[in-house]
Amino acid sequence: MFEVFTRFADWLAYEVMSLSPASKVGDAVHFFIEDVSKIYVLLLVMIYLIALLRASLNVERVRNYLAGKNRAAGYVLGSGFGAITPFCSCSSIPVFLGFTSAGIPVGITMSFLLTSPLINEVAVLLLMSLLGWKFTLLYIVVGMTVGILGGAFLDAIKAERWLQSFAQKALAAGQNAQLPEQQDTETLSMAERHRFAKDETLDIFSRVWKWVIIGVGLGAALHGFVPDGWIEQYLGDGQWWTVPAAVVLGIPLYSNATGVIPVMESLIQNGLPIGTTLAFCMSTVAASFPEFILLKQVMQWRLLATVFVMLLLSFTLVGWLFNGFSSFL
């Protein structure tokens, strides 16, 4: 099904641009054209289709659904909704406050917010097309587990103590208030769904297209210019220190999942162990300073630092686990 993109890249790189398939430049350019064209077509088609399906899902509905759920179910559902609900990271503060003021425990809210950048339809789509369904499934399971356990941990240490005081008051008021009966009868016509899906496709595409170019460009550079076997020779054994090193390296690199997945593809093909790759990529996507600084509005430094360290430790553990078990995969 994807061969058409290989043939398109053959034609453009080797015939139109008359590069040699044997040269490093030819190899890198071919990789770049094939991946970018494939990703763009997939993104446009799939974001539209997915948006049609989920047009009626929004953060308000998720909040109404999560309010009053018991804890254990709450973490799993919070993380699951985090994966499928569309919302832009610039909305994390209002979403946090909206959940909190409905009396939803901080841990469940954080399960939602932690999973959201890691798993979304664009990330899943790219993983499927570049790295196959097994890896995709693995990535989803790991991402949700980090969100679920992270949320449970924050409630276990009573993280709500370290919210800013107005957020604490909102939480207390929400937990004591009787929830109003929700009227959830809104239905969307096909025309409204189409309008939402069209807006959503254009919106997401306009945000991610340049990340695809950057990510695939880096991947192509790795692919064409890092000597074959270099990564495998020096980092291929999954030495224990490579995992924390990868996590630390990922912190200042700020990317979303769209930019980092093409790099993952290239790293894995070059022989970097799967655990090290996952640790690096999750750290790049989820541990970003600009977004953490935003959360300062609702959290005290102590809680921010706790969440940050918790994420770094869990990505390191993920890396070690997968390097340890990769022979069984």
Partner: peptide, 28 residues
């Protein structure tokens, strides 16, 4: 841009539009 303002109008997704103290729109 203040977080307490979001809370005051019950806004959960931004951008949101308030006209003459009435919430008209949110999320896009």
């Amino acid at each position: 841009t203040d977080a307490q303002t979001f809370l005051q109008y019950g806004v959960m997704s931004t951008p949101a539009v308030v006209i003459d103290e009435e919430l008209k729109h949110s999320g896009s």
